[in-house]
Amino acid sequence: MSSQNYSTVSEFILFGFSAFPQQLLPAFFLLYLLMYLFTLLGNLLIMVTIWTEHRLHTPMYLFLCALSISEILFTVAITPRMLSDLLSTRRSISFVACANQMFFSFMFGFTHSFLLMIMGYDRYVAICHPLHYHVLMSPRDCARLVAWTWAGGSIMGMMVTSIVFHLSFCGSNVIHHFLCHVLSLLKLACGDTISSVTMGVILVCVTALIGCLFLIILSYVFIVAAILRIPSAEGRHKTFSTCVSHLTVVVVHYGFASIIYLKPKGFHSTYSDTLMATTYTVFTPFLSPIIFSLRNKELKSAINESFHRKFCSVNS
């Protein structure tokens, strides 16, 4: 990113929560701080439990552990910046810092989608091809899939960020967001290629994310068909219960993303845009460990047993 691409703008101003009533900001700060700490502790608990419990050393929980690592890194990269915005009215940010912020947002967003996709593939293989599961989902293959999700997320994040920051920016440098949000940033760009770049960025993001969602839905079409062939109701329920937590997280992940990017054009205000953005950046990582801890019986049992052993050892 050469300096000549930056035109007359040398830094950006993040408007953040400046439009909100000042008396509400301490309440928002406390709420998001508690959710931030809970997100870190919840995902760390999942990671430690999977690491210490030998019976959880399976592909499904390896992918869950990778998802927890991604959630932690995303939360650490994004939430502290948002909390600092709640303590100050406006915050200036350099081009490099803004580019890094956008890169990490896209990288983790794409990585989450890719991880959810391979977790759906894992459930498909386990239910539809159980005899070949250990061959198709060997530890080496699982590690390779996780590595590909991180590599894919990094490449996508770098590609979109490079496209945006090779534009020229002039005029206003105020971003009406608490992050360097791509759509808010594109509104500040100037030049004849803005509309084509905007459509290109949207096309890249939508193609990748909708592609992942399509493959997840396709996996569950085969999964549901296989479950319906199970003769007993108890067997069908037991089999489907292994998918509930993953399916719930998929709905939350894509549901909150849709709230941000697919809202009606007329529904627009500084308050609504900021609050809707927090649903994806704060609530999704916050809900993920709760869903997996409560909806996954095996993980829930392992966490309870781990707490029980440690509690008994301390008392003894």
Rank of each mutant, 00 (worst) to 15 (best):
S2V: 12
S2Y: 14
N5K: 11
S10Q: 15
F29V: 08
L30V: 15
M35D: 02
Y36E: 08
L44M: 14
L73C: 12
A77L: 10
T79C: 06
T89I: 15
T89W: 09
S92L: 06
A97G: 05
C98R: 03
N100Q: 12
N100V: 14
Q101H: 11
F110P: 00
G120P: 05
R123F: 05
Y124T: 00
H129D: 10
M137A: 07
P139M: 02
C142D: 09
A147V: 08
T149I: 03
G153W: 01
S162D: 09
S162V: 10
C170E: 12
V174P: 00
F178G: 02
C180S: 10
S184H: 11
V197E: 00
G200F: 06
C212T: 04
I216H: 02
L218W: 13
L218Y: 15
A226I: 01
R229I: 00
R236M: 07
H246L: 11
T248C: 13
V249W: 06
V250Q: 01
Y254A: 00
I259K: 05
Y261D: 10
L262F: 13
G266N: 07
S269I: 02
S272D: 03
P289M: 05
R295E: 10
I303D: 09
N304C: 14
K310V: 08
F311W: 13
